[in-house]
Design a binder for these strands. Structure first.
Length: 742
DNA sequence: GTATTTCGGTTTTTT
DNA sequence: ACCGAAATAC
């Protein structure tokens, strides 16, 4: 083996363990890859090595990652090593691979290949409808919770029948009933939810041997990245794809890469068991450890190692680096989240002016999406360019969902959730009553729509509105049948549905941005067409919808080494798999991180700690940890003690910085008191000395300047109606109103 | 049927 | 503080 190591271009610059991992063959392989140990490089080189040296054809390779971005990078890197023939490999996510298989096998398995893909909020909506039908009190049986329990069952490959048999508690019995109805409605809607994509694929492979044989004989190499984040369903899927000798086909070679210390998705069914017991599951397996870290300085690694050591249920492992100690880690205790954001910003500017690090090299991590806000406000005010990854996602905005719902119905009219969404959006006079009438017909909503006049007690006006809508959808569907390009159909929808008109006619300034979002979506469709044509693939509404349904947060991380020159903000979960020269790990407080919801269960605390480990190991050179003594949550200030993870880091590698002594911040001059009143009054001091007359001009703290147009009451009950221009007429109780006469 | 106001839940984390 | 759903008003 050492001869190959010396000469082979695919082994150049790799350490001995990495080389072993690249060239290993003949049995299942588990690569235990610590953070920053070069696992992506090993994976891509292994694929290239298989193609170049082992006579493996590209179409025989399937590599599965968790995000499109990771898949895209891997494909690119393999292509750079072996050239364009890399194209026929399957390098995709679990979910995309499953969609592809399901579409290919649709006719065998008995469903239409133009199925809709329901995301979490679609699932919750469907559960809400079922709950209504069953007369369940949504307070006692929250649809969200029921949907989550169904999802958990699916991740364990437990179907409705099994679930019913196993149900013990009352809530489980209720969920069992919902689960059965839920699956039925999905089937009627020709829709799969995220969990179904995996579960149904497993089902297809298990129930149709001829389908399974197709994939079994094609894929000779199956590689799985981030194996520690696979759930049971994904585990079984991999097992089915690899197969056993009993199938009569040689099993595929399996190579999985993972790090139990970076398992952070137990909450959605990922089980560390899959990696811890790999050797039991595959008795002939070989395990290779990658423990040398090429990413971070020793101080950063020492901090990460010190933290993760506190997890009891863990196999010992020690990452090491030979790149020197590097700078100390910097700690900062902020007054509140605004101060924390200002500190981070000032440090970013300082690092830039001292030429240590650029904004594009910098990431800010936090535990929950809501924490991004303080940073956004401060950065925006000071024109520090940034990009928030995730959070209120583009595809979750109402107007975007409405628009996509049109396309979904055009692709699949039986998609009930989408049809309900658009039937009266924009408002066209089809209210709850009209919809209830259609439902009474006992046929799919789409069919009812086409026969609206037969609906029980149909009002003439409602029927006319429904027929108008049906006509609209039928004419749009003709475009789909004529194979018109998705972007053109999208434009037609925007135009004919009046969705665009509604927004452009609106007074609300935010509607302008919403309209831009929809135009952006048309641009996304054009981009999709360009991409597919480059690959020589067909374009279709279904293909476009698939692409937008399976986007992940991490897919929108700005490309390139310097991330477009902007600071990147994201949750710790999204940060997995990335690295940055400079990292700010913020909100290091009990109840925030570890999150308050995790404090009860030791296993959940351990998951939080792994999350901390992930965060710490993203940093290459400069690591900053910060916490706020006060933080606003649910509208009122909360005080949290320092995160336990801070005290788990050896003191000598953190340097705590004192807050700068700052002048008391100036009051916004617009609302500064003019001194006409006897005492300087706080916001709740009764404003007793204020005497107003009609026509007086006043200044209001929030509404700005206004004119008194009416007066009523006296003394403590004195009220004034004041016109504030764009804020309209307001009736205010003068005792409390923050107004002054000018 | 629609607009406006109130209320209540939300903040884990995501394919 | 904020957003969406439900209750209420129009």
């Amino acid at each position: 083996m050492s001869d190959q190591v010396g000469n082979n271009p695919f082994l150049d610059g790799l350490n001995p363990s990495q080389c072993d991992a690249v060239v290993h063959s003949g049995s299942p392989l588990l690569i235990v890859a610590g953070a920053g140990s070069g696992k992506t490089r090993v994976l891509t080189n292994r694929i290239a090595y298989l193609l170049a040296e082992c006579g493996v054809a590209p179409y025989e390779v399937m590599a599965i990652t968790f995000t499109n971005k990771a898949a895209g990078e891997m494909r690119e890197r393999v292509a750079a090593l072996v050239g364009p023939r890399a194209k026929s490999m399957w390098v995709t996510t679990f979910h995309s691979a499953c969609v592809r298989i399901l579409r290919q096998e649709a006719s065998i398995a008995g469903f239409s290949p133009s199925f809709s893909i329901y995301d979490q909020s679609d699932s919750v909506r469907l559960v809400t409808l079922i709950g209504r039908d069953l007369n369940l009190d949504p307070k006692r049986y929250p649809p969200r919770q029921i949907a989550a329990m169904i999802s958990n069952a699916k991740n364990e490959l437990i179907g409705p029948a099994d679930y019913t048999n196993q149900a013990k508690t009352h809530i489980e019995e209720v969920v069992a009933e919902c689960y059965g109805l839920y699956q039925k409605r999905l089937r009627d809607a020709n829709a799969f939810d995220f969990d179904d994509l995996i579960l149904k694929t497993v089902e297809v492979l298990q129930r149709f041997p001829e389908a399974k044989a197709r994939y079994r004989s094609r894929f000779r190499h199956v590689l799985v990245d981030e194996y520690q984040d696979t759930n049971h369903a994904q585990y079984i899927l991999v097992r089915e794809l690899v197969g056993t000798v009993a199938d009569g086909i040689q099993p595929a070679e399996l190579c999985v890469v993972g790090d139990a210390d970076q398992s952070i998705y137990a909450f959605r069914g990922a089980t560390i068991r899959n990696i811890l017991q790999f050797e039991e599951d595959y008795p002939s397996a070989r395990t290779i450890l990658l423990e040398q870290n090429y990413r971070s300085t020793q101080n950063i690694l020492s901090a990460a190692n010190a933290v993760i050591t506190n997890n009891a249920s863990r196999k010992a492992k020690n990452l090491w680096s030979d790149s020197g100690d590097g700078a100390l880690i910097t700690g900062y205790v902020a007054e509140d989240e605004r101060d924390e954001a200002e500190y981070v910003m000032n440090e970013i500017f300082r690092l830039q002016s001292e030429n240590i690090s650029q904004p594009g090299d910098t990431a800010i991590f936090y535990r929950t999406n809501s924490q991004s806000r303080a940073f956004e406000e401060v950065f925006m005010r000071n024109t520090l360019p940034y990009k928030v990854v995730g959070g209120v996602r583009f595809y979750e905005r109402k107007e975007v969902r409405d628009f996509l719902a049109y396309l979904r119905v055009l692709a699949n009219p039986y998609d009930e959730i989408s049809l309900r969404r658009i039937i009266n959006t924009p408002k066209r006079g089809i209210g709850d009553k009209a919809i209830a009438g259609l439902e009474q017909m006992g046929i799919p909503l789409w069919d009812a729509l086409l026969n609206a006049k037969d609906a029980p007690d149909a009002a003439a006006r409602a029927t006319a509105a429904i027929e108008g809508f049906a006509k609209l959808m039928i004419s749009l569907r003709e475009l789909v049948e004529a194979n018109v390009r998705p972007s053109v159909i999208a434009e037609a929808v925007l135009e004919q549905s009046k969705l665009g008109e509604e927004l452009s006619d609106s007074e609300d300034p935010q509607d302008e941005a919403r309209l831009e979002n929809l135009q952006e979506l048309v641009a996304v469709a054009q981009e999709y067409e360009a991409d597919e044509q480059l690959e020589g693939e067909e374009v279709s509404i279904v293909g476009f919808l698939e692409r937008v349904s399976l986007v992940a947060d991490s897919d929108q991380i700005p490309d390139g080494e310097d991330h477009g020159g902007v600071v990147t903000l994201m949750t710790l979960h999204t940060a997995k798999g990335l690295e940055f020269p400079t990292v700010f790990l913020t909100g290091m407080e009990e109840n925030v991180f570890p999150h308050s919801r995790s404090l009860g269960e030791p296993s959940e605390i351990e998951e939080e700690r792994r999350l901390a480990y992930v965060g710490l190991t993203r940093a290459r050179k400069n690591l900053f940890l910060s916490r706020a003594s006060t933080r606003f949550a649910f509208g009122s200030p909360t005080y949290n003690s320092p995160s336990r993870f801070l005290s788990e880091i050896p003191e000598e590698i953190i340097q705590w910085k004192a807050p700068e002594i700052r002048l008391k911040s100036k009051v916004n001059p617009k609302v500064a008191p003019t001194g006409k009143r006897t005492s300087s009054n706080g916001p709740n001091d009764p404003n007793t000395n204020l005497h107003l007359e009609i026509g007086d001009r006043v200044l209001h703290q929030t509404f700005g300047m206004g004119t008194v147009i009416a007066l009523s009451g006296a003394e403590e009950k004195a009220e004034a109606t004041i016109n504030f221009g764009t804020y309209g007429d307001r009736r205010l109780l003068l005792r409390y109103a923050p107004v002054e006469k000018i």
